[in-house]
Amino acid sequence: MKSFVLIVSAVFVCVGCSGGHRVVSLPDTHGAQHVPLAAHGDEVVVLLFSSPDCPIANAIAPEIERLHQLTLAGGGRFYLVHARRDVTAGGAAAHAREFGITATVLLDREQTLVQIMDATVTPELVVLAAAQDGTLRTTYQGRINNLYASLGNRRDRATKHWGRDAISKTLNGERVDPPYRQPLGCFLEQNQ
């Protein structure tokens, strides 16, 4: 069974950096580096794994932007993460513009973040909150809503919004139940 309570700092491996933690640093579409898993106080961190050409992820682009705004309003950080080697900074920026996404877009070309978070498809949401010991813990991982009932089986619109609920509850310090919902989307296959 997938471990849904993941102590992110525990999987950080020292790779020549001080502090004993591997620092996952990823570039955004402007080339600036971000450390998405760095815990800053009690800040909530939201990762949304996506792909510019996945129709299932693109179909929820307006919802992704709503989740971004919801996170920002609650004082959290939100990252859209593209995890394919062939996604360029220019292509990712153009995709964000085309779909009206204003969140920071990270390029995880080596799928480092994918592996740490054990993400399997796009779209897949990961919500993290700082625990009392200062480490980030996953409060929710999985599906954003029920727009798709299964692959190829799409509703006209979503009627359940698990992503919104998970972010809202995490921002309010409440428990998310269940903390994991099997995500549904385009497979995150290994890079060539």
């Binding site: 996945c54 062939d86 497979f187 296959e189």
Partner: peptide, 27 residues
């Protein structure tokens, strides 16, 4: 359709996904 399947470089990174959606007769 949302992506090209014309080149090996297009299809190989989606091989499992292509196998899944075809086996389910979605595509």
């Amino acid at each position: 359709a949302p992506f090209s399947l014309a080149r090996y470089e297009d299809v190989a990174p989606r091989a499992a996904f292509v196998a899944e959606v075809t086996s389910q007769h979605i595509m």
